[in-house]
Each structure stands twice: as C-alpha cells, then as structure tokens.
C-alpha cells in the first residue's frame, strides 16, 4: 500500500487515529493505552501484515518521551511509523515483544537508556549498562557524566 492508502485504511479502522505530517512514511500517533489494540492489528491484519519491526526507539523531548516504532511488511514492503507519547514523570507502556520477538532486546535497551518501563516484558533487565546503574538513564537530555567522556 502507498502512504495515502495506508492512511485511509488506518483512519477507517482506528477512528481516533491522528497522523503526523512531513515524514517520509505514514506516521500514526496513538495513546499509550491504545497500543495493545493497534499493534496486534498491524501484525495480524492481512491488509497490513506488518511482520517486521525493524527499529524501536525513544526520543526524549524534555516534557515527554516519545516511543517510536518502525514497522514494515516483508510481503507488501510498505513502511509505517507508530509513535506514542509517554509521561516523563512515569514513562511506561505495554511491551510488544510478544508480537515481535526482536522487541525484547530493543525494549531492554530503551529501558536502560531512557528509563521507560515496559509492562509485561518477560525479562526487563539492564542489557548494555553495568550493574548498579539503575536510575541514571544516559540518553535522557539531562544526563551528565562527570567521569566518562560522552560529549566531544
């Protein structure tokens, strides 16, 4: 499906859907609460068949954290970006790793680097950072490390 077709189909299936303009691909904005309605639909609906989660990350916007999911379909080759805004004071969202297994590691990475709590994640632990690092999330904008060089 082209970007326009994707958008039309999405608006039809999810009446509350809002879109972000200007990107290369259709970008769908959803509430964190709606994640578990939208994601299984994207994966299982034959028209979408978004079976490949190729990128999962977060962006710290100081006032909130935005989760970004990049999906594609290995049958139709269409791409879709799904974004969800999380509360900065208590960032949490359902895990998608039961839908796409690749999310298990990617979410662990976001958990340690951004402090996002993934509800129902089977194994939410530090992956890259050493033990005892909990609470300090390096990719947040207010993180500063006096010892190690992270800025050039």
């Amino acid at each position: 499906m082209s970007n326009e077709e994707l958008k039309a189909k999405l608006s039809e299936l999810i009446p509350t859907a809002t879109f972000e303009e200007g990107g290369e691909w259709t970008t769908l904005l959803i509430e964190p609460k709606a994640l578990m309605e939208v994601m299984p639909l994207m994966r299982n609906d034959v028209a979408f068949n978004m079976d490949y989660l190729f990128c999962l990350t977060a962006v710290d916007w100081k006032t909130h954290i935005t989760m970004v999911y990049h999906l594609t379909s290995t049958t139709y080759r269409h791409n879709l970006v799904i974004k969800s805004k999380l509360d900065k004071s208590k960032p949490e969202i359902e895990t998608v790793c039961l839908i796409w297994r690749s999310a298990e590691f990617l979410e662990r990475e976001v958990y340690e680097l951004f402090g996002v709590n993934f509800i129902n994640h089977p194994d939410l632990r530090l992956l890259i950072l050493p033990d005892g690092w909990e609470g300090k999330n390096p990719l947040l904008k207010d993180f500063d490390d006096p010892i190690n060089m992270i800025k050039l």
Partner: peptide, 13 residues
C-alpha cells in the same frame, strides 16, 4: 548475552 563491554555511547556522542 551480556553486552556493553565495548559500549561507547555513540548515540549520545
């Protein structure tokens, strides 16, 4: 897998 032995925080850099 336990990772991070050569993590340089390239994204932050």
């Amino acid at each position: 897998p336990h990772l991070g032995y050569i993590h340089r925080s390239i994204e932050k850099m």
